[in-house]
Simulated scan of single mutants.
Amino acid sequence: MLKALLTTTRVILTAVGLIVVIDCIILMAVGKINFGSVVPFLVGIIFIAHGIFWHAIRQFSSQHLWLNRLWYALWAIFVLWLISFVVFVYALQQQIKNSQQPAPTVAAIIVLGSGTVAGKPTPTLASRLDTAVPLIKSQPDALVITSGGVGFQRTRSEADIMATYLHETHDIQFERVLQEGKSTSTEENLAHSQEIIEAKGLSITRPIAIVTSDFHTIRAASIARHQGYQQPIPVASSTPLSIRYNAWFREYFAFVSGWLLGEY
């Protein structure tokens, strides 16, 4: 029984490790080298190593008392991490549920960027823009800001591509959309958008909608509050089921990264 359980554990560790490592390699290959991709990559390597070399690792660690204690301590830390991840996922689900409610009257609508390919929004970004459209059309007096800078080896800002998509796909006039084309992160998205809002004579103490992917709502709202937004209202666009849980996993590490960097 114990042998079968150990074999199952090793298979699970190896499989999960491979999935995480491959996913992180793909992310880093397209330039997303950050805490949210590097740490899971290292965790995946550790999983694979334990899955393949479990007996060798245990045999080596058991020969030294301090190594044996360290081994158990690291697994205890992992269990605590797993608990924190479950708590994060629960909080995220509650935030997603709240962010899918109809938004009240707002002073501004900020749509956060999420990447472009060949001058077009990625599916994730297109989903954010599609989600923003009903709010934009129902609140004609609200400022509309597309937020995203010029990516690596790009010539157009993400904000410009977003505004073009809104115009060509949803008939939102260019004149209606203000473009924030300098940012390269969520923190910069909101900071530069704040400058535009205040330049238009509005205050960030008023209700301001922040349209982003559902998995990103907790971090975006936390950063906004830290920057002085008094009433940030996250508006969630749905994430396809095929990548939803992967996005939640990466967002956990991104949230921790933001906390360590003092973004909230």
Rank of each mutant, 00 (worst) to 15 (best):
Q94T: 13
I77F: 12
Q95G: 05
I77E: 06
I96K: 07
W75K: 12
L82V: 11
F85K: 03
W75H: 15
A76D: 00
A91E: 11
V87C: 06
Q95S: 14
Y90R: 00
Q95I: 02
W81R: 05
W75R: 07
V89Y: 14
P104F: 08
L82R: 05
A76E: 00
N98C: 07
A91C: 09
L112E: 03
Q93D: 08
L74N: 09
L112A: 01
P104M: 10
Q93N: 13
I83S: 05
F78Y: 14
L92D: 07
T105G: 01
W81K: 07
L112V: 01
I109K: 03
Q101V: 07
I110A: 00
I83A: 13
S114Q: 09
L92F: 04
S114H: 09
V111R: 04
A108I: 04
A91F: 08
I83R: 00
V89G: 10
A76N: 02
Q100A: 05
I109C: 01
V86F: 14
V89N: 12
V89W: 13
A107G: 05
A108S: 06
V89E: 07
P102V: 06
A76K: 00
I83W: 08
W81I: 15
L82Q: 15
F78N: 09
A103C: 03
Q94E: 12
A108Q: 09
Q94C: 02
G115K: 11
I96M: 11
A76W: 00
S114K: 10
G113Y: 01
S114R: 01
I110V: 10
L92Q: 08
V86D: 10
F78C: 14
L74M: 15
W81P: 04
I110R: 01
I109T: 01
G115I: 07
V87W: 06
F88T: 02
F88Y: 13
V111Y: 05
A107K: 08
N98A: 15
F88N: 02
Q93G: 13
L74W: 10
A108P: 09
G115A: 08
L80S: 12
V89I: 14
V89K: 01
Q100R: 11
I83T: 12
Y90T: 08
P102G: 13
A107Q: 13
F85A: 10
A103F: 04
Q94L: 13
